[in-house]
Amino acid sequence: MLVLNNIEVIYDGVILVLKGVSIEANEGRITTVLGANGAGKTTTLKAISGVLRTERGDVTRGSIEFKGQRIDRLRPHEVVKLGIVQVFEGRRVFANLTAEENLIAGGHIVSSTAKMRENMEKVYTYFPRIAERRHVIAGYLSGGEQQMLAVGRALMSDPNMILLDEPSLGLAPMIVEEIFGIVQRLRAQENVTFLIVEQNATLALEFADFGYVMENGAVVLQGPAEELRGNADIKEFYLGMSGDEKRSFRDVKHYRRRKRWLG
């Protein structure tokens, strides 16, 4: 459904951030992109949604295709019209608008107001907590509520695909479970395809169907989620399990050597 074909992203004309990334997200699936800080995960999502150009970044090589159509030259609002919407890292709700106004803004591309209202009711059934707090200024909602609002706001545009950037960031484990639970329900009931960027690999691999691991602007590992869960390197570097016995300092050095090999 969404295919990134060997894309290269350069910021400011000089800084090479993505060095040939190829990722595929299939319809009705949850695909996850794992990796440490600065690996290029968020840049990948921004390249898809088109907001990259507002940060003076540009896709200089390769192509991004959605349902067979090239989208890497489109402007962000055109990408949304095609059915892809991004949920930013750190929620980024419209802090000065009420929760409901956030949803109205999210449903901007739905031209019929009746349909927009209908979508809003749907969001409220998925997120009853937001329905309760609909007249509260979004900046005063709790972190969990804001994340739910951000997902709900994305849902307002009737998307085929949601790009979810670090939904677990700074939230309590219970809330995170709840949000991922809703992601699964959306996939099942609304047939929404997800591409999720996460640092929390345990969690992401638990919910995802397929996973990619990025390092230094390139994909270094990919496979079905259960396969990745079993992969020794993933276990060691991302899941925090290191086999049987405790490691000595010498092995930590060994870890760094291995890490370089991965990149």
């Binding site: 907001v51 507002t54 962000p76 609002h77 949304v80 930013f88 980024r92 419209f94 901007h108």
Partner: peptide, 11 residues
């Protein structure tokens, strides 16, 4: 409120 987020919402 935010140019970037608005764009990403299809505005």
């Amino acid at each position: 409120d935010s140019h970037q987020v608005s764009m990403a919402m299809g505005i």
